[in-house]
Simulated assay, not measured.
Amino acid sequence: MRLLTFLTPLLALLPIALSADQQHWANLSSKSKDGVIKLDTESYREILSDDREYSVSVVLTALPAQFKCQPCHDFDPSFHQVAASWKRKPRHVRDNHFFAKLDFQDGQAIYQELGLTSAPTVMFHPALSGPNKSNKLSVITYEMNRNGLTAPPLHSFLSNLTPEPFSFYKPINPVHLVAIPMSLFAIVVSLYSMRRVLIPLIQSRLIWGTFSIILILTFTSGHMWNKIKNAPYVAAGPNGQISWIAGGYSNQLGLESQVVGGIYGLLAFSIIALTVLIPAQSSPVKQRIGVYLWLGMLIIVFSLLMKLFRMKNGGYPFGLLF
């Protein structure tokens, strides 16, 4: 009596013997790489027999090229991925539910019987007898239009219907595990081999100064405002003419910001020339000519900038040469 009491829980853990037809589908599923059984008209009717003790998830699709069903090709990897996730369950569990696929060219009669005019379509057929029979005896169709063609929504839908919930498994791509470290190693080696060239460039005040000026001009000219507001490059004027200046201080066009950036760049370079380049000249004559030249450039360009402000807003009171 004590021995029987001890063995009862262990006997409950042993897999229950499968019926002949269920064992047949279990063998076909185990031979498939991801557990998907390929059906035709006859096997479709056989796997969905009225006395089945197992449930079935069937995708009705049209993969051959002559049918031109792009959603079928997009959804097919998702269905196989979910089926492969279910196949990771223990055999005594996964043999109570099968994933199957019926292509249109292999089962046109089934499509006509079901009245299907589009693909892909996923249907869950519950068990009709045996220990897995539940109160859900009607076929449940997956809402493809609302859930889309990706695998996670399909997994969430089927995991609530299968005999046991199952986790979604996404295989790891070994190429990334090898390619990324090798790429990083190659970059490090390349940078190390070019250190004699790169270190002087990194320490160059000229390069960092030029980069800083370009960055400052990009932001002060209004480039980020154009990106945020999606401002047009030019606009049509009242007479059909192309206008590159937007009236008012709260509007701006793409070409206008480029012109302003160019003006700011000339002004910045004029100041740099007056403070750095001209004092570096050894000849007093060259220094004098340079001062006159770049000071004149500074005044002219700044006058153009003020004129641009007056063109944007007629009430701007200041001006210089123009």
Rank of each mutant, 00 (worst) to 15 (best):
L3A: 10
L7I: 01
T8C: 04
P9N: 00
L11Q: 00
L13E: 08
L14Q: 09
L18H: 08
W25E: 06
L28E: 14
K31H: 06
I47V: 13
D50Q: 08
A62I: 09
S78V: 05
F79Y: 13
Q81E: 09
Q81A: 13
A84M: 03
W86Q: 07
K87A: 09
P90F: 02
D103K: 05
F104R: 11
Q108F: 05
Q112E: 12
A119H: 11
M123S: 13
P126C: 08
L128A: 13
K133C: 07
K136G: 03
L137Q: 15
V139F: 11
M144C: 00
F157S: 08
F166A: 08
F166M: 05
F168R: 15
L177R: 02
I180W: 06
I180R: 10
M182A: 14
S183L: 15
S190E: 03
S190F: 14
S190R: 07
R195L: 04
V197Y: 15
L201C: 10
R205T: 08
H223W: 11
H223P: 02
M224L: 14
I228K: 13
P232M: 04
V234T: 12
A236M: 11
G237C: 10
G237A: 12
N239R: 13
N239H: 13
I242A: 04
I245H: 05
N251C: 02
Q258G: 01
V259L: 14
G262V: 05
Y264G: 03
Y264K: 10
A268P: 01
I272E: 01
I272M: 09
L274W: 11
L274Q: 11
V276S: 07
S282C: 02
S283T: 09
V285A: 07
Q287I: 07
R288C: 02
G290D: 00
I300L: 14
V301E: 02
F302I: 00
F302K: 04
L304S: 13
G314M: 01
G319N: 07
